[in-house]
Amino acid sequence: MSMKFWKRTTALIAMLCLSACQHGMDPVAFHADGRPPKLSDWHVVEVRDGKLQLNQGVVPYNLNTPLFTDYAHKLRTIWMPKGVSAKYDPNDTFDFPVGTVISKTFYYPKTADGKAGDVARTYDSSHDFAGEGLDLAQVHLVETRILVHRTDGWAAIPYVWNDAQTEADLARTGAVLPLTLVAADSSREDFNYVVPDESQCSSCHAQDWVTRKIHPIGPKARHLNRTYHYASGEENQLEHLMKVGYLTGAPAPAQAPSNANWMDEHASLDARARAYLDINCGHCHNPKGAANTTALTLDASAPEDRHLGVCKPPVAAGRGTGDHMFDIVPGKPDDSILSYRMNSADPGEMMPEIGRSTVHREGVALIKAWIAAQPGSCVAIH
């Protein structure tokens, strides 16, 4: 038998398996207005047979370096109506058509003893998935955020999962969920997981602080240019989105930008740190973003000079400076405002200001190592 035959057979089996997983689901619903009270009203992801399953046409994706949210794991998906596609952009968020529904489900791996309120602090996601969905025997669902593109722009709608893990309910005013992170060494850290309300969503998702219109953050070429293990096998995400008709105009992956994985020690320290700052800080710290008055630019476009904070005095950091003189002091992370604010969980000092209640220890260590490796010095002007 030919290789072509086996490829076709494998693809057919994958499609049949996927169809079996979607058995009984109503088609994905695009709600042109309003705030549906239940996540299941969208029919994007639903709990069935002990799994959080993806509906037909719902495509999962991941980012080279993800935004940190209190060590939560995330399942991201895109769905579009038939006959429309997003337009590729090499730098900015893709131009998604009206009708697009993007979901992001936040969850944690369960601890070994399964104690209520305890969640695992781990980067290991090998036990999370059942096909392209999530195995609820292994994970605890927290929230799912919907971004829907309507005729008047994007709308952000948060949903919080119930204790039974059967449904997520609309949470327009947000929520505060007490949880405990449990590490592999059994150390424990109590924290409040904060689900943002609808107005808080705009503080990160408003790419232009003048218009305040929100947009997705993650679906950019440099974040998506990586492989993903789909039901049909591993494939580059840009190529897969083109193949299924969800994207037009993308070049070959080798010609598209690609951020580093911040955890990939084979990548340069500079590439890893810049990728981390880009996804965690760049959506606000850019010339049009919410933090544009700070003169601190942390997205991928920033040159490595005062725009990036090197020897730059703070503009409006208040007590968030920690009495330090410059955003970044080359070679001296403990004298730098950037790492100081990242290492704080005090609401008056911490950066980012929302989206986390805990300190990302490994992220802070990365940025400190990056600052420590920078040559040069700063001279304070009195």
Rank of each mutant, 00 (worst) to 15 (best):
K4W: 07
K7R: 10
A11M: 05
L12P: 03
S19K: 07
A20T: 09
M25V: 00
A32Y: 04
D33G: 04
E46C: 00
D49S: 10
G50S: 00
L54E: 11
F68N: 14
F68I: 09
H73K: 11
K82G: 10
G83C: 13
V84T: 13
F94K: 08
Y107V: 02
H127K: 03
T151S: 14
P158Q: 09
T166W: 11
R172Y: 08
G174A: 06
D190A: 12
P196H: 05
S199C: 04
T211M: 13
G218K: 05
R222F: 04
R222A: 13
T227D: 11
S232K: 04
L238G: 06
E239I: 06
V244D: 03
L247D: 06
A254M: 01
W262E: 06
M263D: 15
H266A: 07
A271K: 02
R272L: 02
N280A: 10
A290F: 01
N292C: 00
A302L: 08
V315Q: 02
A316E: 00
D323G: 07
P330W: 04
D335K: 14
D335T: 04
S344Y: 08
G348Q: 14
E349H: 06
L366S: 12
W370A: 03
A373I: 00
A373T: 01
I381W: 05
